[in-house]
Amino acid sequence: MNHYETVFILTPVLSDAQMKEAVDKFKAVITDNAGAIVNEENWGLRKLAYPIQKKSTGFYTLLEFDANPEVIKKLETQFRRDERVLRFLTFRLDKYAAEYAAKRRSLKASKPAAETTNVEPENKEA
């Protein structure tokens, strides 16, 4: 199994429930075909570099997963068939990119814990 990363942009007119349903649909395509989701990041609503279908913003989502190459064809077919997807990009990570992604995930996981432990007391001056 190869390690893949896919980023896709959903149309900004979706509600939060519709956006989550679309992401779950694509995650199901991966897991139903013997793939495993490694990481999911919701980057939220962001401005696009250029208008796509007269829209200037979109919901960005990143999925890291392990799967066989046949799964990619099925996943990208689903991306093309779904009208909610503005753009998508899927690529296979080599060993260096996979190491970097794992390192980034571990740093991101430790960052919120460090922020809560390093809380400075408020300065109470009268």
Rank of each mutant, 00 (worst) to 15 (best):
M1G: 05
N2F: 11
H3M: 11
H3F: 10
Y4G: 02
Y4V: 01
T6W: 02
V7W: 00
V7A: 02
V7N: 01
V7K: 00
F8K: 01
F8V: 04
F8E: 01
T11G: 07
P12N: 11
V13R: 10
V13K: 08
Q18C: 04
Q18T: 03
Q18N: 07
K20D: 15
K20R: 14
A22L: 04
K25Q: 11
K25E: 08
K25L: 12
F26A: 06
F26Q: 02
K27V: 09
K27M: 13
V29H: 04
I30R: 00
I30C: 03
I30Y: 00
T31H: 12
D32C: 06
A34Y: 07
A34T: 07
G35R: 02
A36I: 12
I37Y: 03
V38F: 10
V38M: 10
N39E: 15
N39F: 12
E40M: 13
E40G: 10
E41I: 11
E41A: 14
E41R: 08
L45T: 10
R46I: 06
K47S: 13
L48F: 09
L48A: 09
L48P: 01
Y50D: 07
Y50N: 08
I52N: 08
Q53K: 08
Q53R: 11
K54I: 02
K54Y: 07
S56C: 09
S56W: 09
T57R: 14
F59D: 00
F59L: 13
Y60W: 11
T61I: 13
L62Q: 07
E64S: 11
E64K: 03
F65G: 00
A67M: 13
A67S: 15
A67I: 09
P69Q: 15
P69M: 15
E70I: 07
E70R: 12
I72Q: 01
K73E: 14
K74R: 13
K74M: 11
E76C: 15
T77K: 14
F79T: 08
R80S: 15
E83N: 15
E83F: 07
R84S: 15
V85P: 00
L86E: 03
L86G: 02
R87M: 12
R87C: 09
F88C: 08
F88T: 01
T90N: 07
R92A: 13
R92I: 04
R92K: 10
L93K: 06
D94V: 02
K95E: 11
Y96F: 12
A98P: 00
Y100P: 00
R104M: 12
R104L: 15
R105G: 02
R105V: 04
S106I: 01
S106K: 06
L107P: 00
K108M: 11
K108E: 09
S110L: 03
S110Y: 01
K111W: 08
P112N: 06
P112I: 03
P112K: 05
A114Q: 06
E115W: 02
E115N: 08
E115R: 05
T116N: 03
T117I: 06
N123G: 01
K124T: 03
K124H: 04
E125D: 06
A126C: 05
A126W: 06
